[in-house]
């Protein structure tokens, strides 16, 4: 499993890359592997705002569907529209082309409950 060290990870298996007052959010390698072939992703509209920990979308494979939670509070600036036709990008490139959202942070990002790559790797190991 690959967990890039420049990212923060949530217990619900999303990653976030914070850059100033914006952030990019996606699903971890562990999540895409557990879900297996992803066939559909539902994402919010640009302009929607969410609290930290709120459900902003869902992801479906043949056998499962999972809600996706926002690791930090924010307003949606951009969604990855390629996923509409190519949801498998999450499987093939979860940290690159498979990104989900770009958000504008609506407050100072609270990352106290998010994990480093090492901690997240250990967390996944135990599951």
């Amino acid at each position: 499993m690959n967990f890039p060290s420049d990212l923060k990870y949530a217990k619900s298996d999303e990653w976030v890359r914070i850059d100033g007052n914006t952030a990019v959010v996606g699903l971890s390698d562990y999540a895409q592997d557990a879900l297996n072939d992803i066939v559909y992703v539902e994402l919010p509209e640009v302009g929607d705002t969410f609290e930290k920990g709120a459900v902003f979308g869902s992801v479906e494979s043949v056998k499962a569907a999972s809600d996706i939670y926002l690791p930090v509070a924010g307003k949606v600036l951009e969604v990855n529209t390629r996923l509409e036709d190519e949801p498998e990008l999450i499987n093939s490139d979860p940290y690159g082309d498979g990104w989900l959202l770009k958000i504008e942070l609506t407050s100072e990002a609270d990352t106290s409950d998010l994990m480093s790559a090492d901690d997240y790797a250990a967390y996944c190991e135990d599951r």
């Binding site: 479906e60 494979s61 043949v62 056998k63 499962a64 569907a65 809600d67």
Partner: peptide, 13 residues
């Protein structure tokens, strides 16, 4: 098809 939306998989959701 589209089974994951159904109650046996999605349960209370």
């Amino acid at each position: 098809t589209l089974r994951p939306r159904e109650q046996d998989i999605r349960r209370e959701k």
